[in-house]
Nucleic acid binder design. Structure first.
Length: 634
RNA sequence: GCGCCCGUAGCUCAAUGGAUAGAGCAUUGGUCUUCGGAACCAAGGGUUAGAGGUUCGACUCCUCUCGGGCGCGCCA
């Protein structure tokens, strides 16, 4: 039996609905009857409400209040709720439900007691499946920038939520480690090394980053500038300089292309240089993830290079089956029947493959080899225009269904297998994408260092008694919580404004506030032991929810399983943030008004200690889904 | 030109199509002889950019307008 009141009430409502209106049971839509149970926003409307009568009124051709009345007459929830009568029907047909005090206590106790797969009321999935989460996506020879934060943090939170619910999750870090850009840097690294300008053995990622940018510049020909100079008959000297620049760049690019060919054909020296790039970059990348407490490790690395031997096969397959065709020398998949007017190029006219080919190969592997029933791409919203045709082509190719090779129309379920969990841009307070004052993009570790420094100052000021040994770790945990929570707590698809001051403010809906709520709970147990000596047996003690604050806290705790499910369904971690903030707020009210250690009776002390402990467990569990560790002291 | 996203209180953000649009910050006031004051309680502040439409009901869905941002075959 479910531990979630919304589910319990939902089952009872469905029974009542089918009892009152048997004609609904005969229709094929019977399984789709939605009892529409929600936690009430306003306490005046009770604890929970059903909004189903209004919807059913239409299909039944009856006034909604009459529908509600008939449901209420059949409703059998007496053992958990106050009597539901005609007086419980409000407005157009809302049915309000107030839990009986003893039932509220019992439900809360059961949620507390539930262990294993049912821990904290979270039921194992009825649809167990494998889910691939595509996250992070760094590029070789480039430092981890602040804009990698969102994909990593949001992707990790989504993956953790699925894992907590009991799904099998496979994270995939789709590293940009292949193609002409990478060949340019590889070429430059080899050249500088050959010329003795660098020692390849102790090159750092910052050096590679410089090389990457230099290689980019070297290979970019200013052909527009040259054309303009000619049009405007600028001086011969200017034109000569531009001609030299263009021919130099073209030569550099040609050289990079030769390096790419050498890399692709497995030339040992070139491959060795490339592996050096990969090792340096990934070492740094995974170290940043570890600092961030994001679960992204080497086993999750699946770079573009890992698909290189599958690209020709994908194109052949699509050509053979008539899904792809020749067009102006290139090979494309036409997508008009998918509602997309521009074809997707999967092989260039020069015979090369591009990222769309890699993405298709990745989808094929993820579905057919890794067994994914769902693939979630946690990638910047600006890539939406790229994913749409790639997903459409994958559907058309049947790559989204296990073993499917025919071309019949795909169902909406199959279509939902590939999801782009798009996120907005991190903005500065100037309304522009977050960058340094000089306009350079920022390195993620610098942001971490700055946040830790600020957290350290705050800890030093507010908790001077904290042992020095703990201070560093405490500051790091607070900083990570602040950064991650700020990123996760707003709607994923929207841009959000980054501000150290706001996220570190320790007030309001922030990571540090939640850590503080948790720390105060831990502190109560220390204080209780000091003052009371031996604690009353609070584990398993019956809950006394007499005050409004205790009652509200229990009701908030009961909303937990539903909140987790909502995050998984919507792929929106900010809903978990909102829930945890509600919980922390409910706890703070309780804390203010209900003394625990000083409670009048031993039974009440035990009850309140249990409530504290349960709150702490839910907070910790919820924060763990966001990838935020908690503290004992701060 | 085509397409996607966004517009909610002074600021930063919430609100599975549900009841009187909620929080935090800032402002003003209050509580408590602190189980950690990094607290709690309260007040003021709104034509949800604008105009139509769908419906019992719209911040939410549809159309148009305005404003802001971002993408648009052989780079990734």
């Amino acid at each position: 039996m479910s531990l979630d009141p919304i589910q319990i009430l939902g089952e009872r409502f469905i029974a009542a609905i089918l009892g009152a209106f048997p004609q609904l049971g005969a229709s094929p839509a019977a399984a789709a009857i939605d009892p529409m149970i929600t936690a009430s926003k306003n306490p005046k409307s009770g604890d929970f409400q059903s909004n189903t009568a209004m919807g059913l009124a239409k299909t039944l051709g009856m006034p909604p209040r009459d529908v509600a009345k008939q449901i209420v007459e059949r409703l059998d929830i007496g053992e958990i709720a106050e009597a539901v009568t005609e007086a419980s029907i409000a407005g157009p047909g809302f049915i309000n439900i107030k839990l009986r005090p003893d039932a509220l206590a019992r439900l809360t106790e059961r949620l507390d007691t539930a262990a294993g797969e049912q821990r904290l009321g979270i039921a194992p999935p009825t649809d167990p499946m494998t889910i691939v989460v595509d996250l992070m996506g760094v590029n070789l020879a480039k430092q981890v920038q602040v804009w990698h934060l969102r994909s990593t943090v949001i992707g990790d939170a989504i993956a953790r939520t699925f894992e907590r619910l009991g799904y099998k999750v496979i994270r995939q870090n789709h590293v940009g480690d292949w193609g002409l850009q990478i060949a340019m840097v590889t070429d430059r690294l080899m050249r500088l090394s050959r010329e003795g300008k660098i020692n390849a053995a102790n090159v750092a990622l910052t050096d590679l980053d410089v090389m990457y940018k230099a290689a980019q510049r070297e290979c970019s020909a200013d052909e527009d500038g040259l054309a303009m100079a000619r049009t405007w008959h600028m001086g011969p000297k200017v034109i000569a300089e531009l001609e030299a620049q263009v021919s130099g760049a073209l030569e550099a690019e040609a050289q990079a292309k030769r390096t790419l060919v050498a890399l692709q054909s497995g030339d040992p020296a070139t491959v060795a240089a490339w592996e050096r790039l990969a090792k340096i970059t990934m070492g740094e990348c995974l170290a940043v993830c570890a600092r961030l407490k994001a679960n992204v490790t080497s086993e999750h690395t699946a770079g573009e290079s890992s698909y290189r031997d599958e690209l020709a096969g994908v194109v052949d397959d699509l050509m053979k089956r008539g899904i792809a065709e020749q067009d102006q020398g290139a090979i494309v998949v036409k997508l008009d029947d998918e509602g997309i007017s521009t074809p997707l190029i999967i092989r260039k006219s020069d015979g090369g493959f591009i990222y769309a080919t890699t993405d298709l190969a990745a989808i094929r592997r993820r579905v057919q080899k890794l067994g994914a029933q769902r693939v979630v791409y946690v990638v910047d919203a600006r890539q939406g225009g790229h994913f749409a045709p790639v997903f459409a082509a994958a559907h058309k190719a049947g790559y989204t269904a296990l073993g499917r090779t025919d071309l019949r129309a795909v169902s909406s379920e199959e279509r939902a297998i590939l999801q782009h969990a798009a996120f907005g841009t991190m903005m500065g307070d100037d309304g522009r994408p977050y960058k340094s004052r000089s306009g350079e993009s920022l390195v993620l570790t610098d942001m971490l260092d700055e946040a830790i420094a600020r957290a350290d100052r705050a800890v030093a000021g507010k908790s001077p008694d904290l042992p020095a040994a703990d201070r560093r770790m405490t500051a790091e945990t607070i900083a990570i919580a602040a950064i991650k929570y700020a990123d996760l707590s707003t709607e994923r698809t929207k841009d959000y404004v980054f501000s150290y001051d706001r996220m570190m403010s320790f007030e309001g809906n922030t990571g540090p506030y939640l850590l503080y709520a948790q720390v105060r709970i831990k502190s109560i147990f220390r204080t209780a032991e000091e003052k009371l000596g031996e604690l009353p047996a609070w584990q398993g003690a019956p809950l006394d929810l007499s005050t409004a604050e205790e009652r509200n806290l229990a009701l908030t705790i009961l909303r937990y399983p539903g909140s987790v499910r909502t995050v998984a369904d919507s792929l929106e971690p900010h809903r978990m943030c909102q829930y945890l903030y509600d919980l922390a707020t409910a706890y703070s009210s309780f804390y203010q008004n209900c003394k625990v250690v000083g409670a009048p009776t031993e039974a009440l002390i035990a009850s309140r200690l249990r409530l504290c402990s349960l709150t702490a467990r839910v907070l910790e569990d919820g924060l763990s889904m966001l990838g935020i560790p908690t503290l004992e002291r701060m």
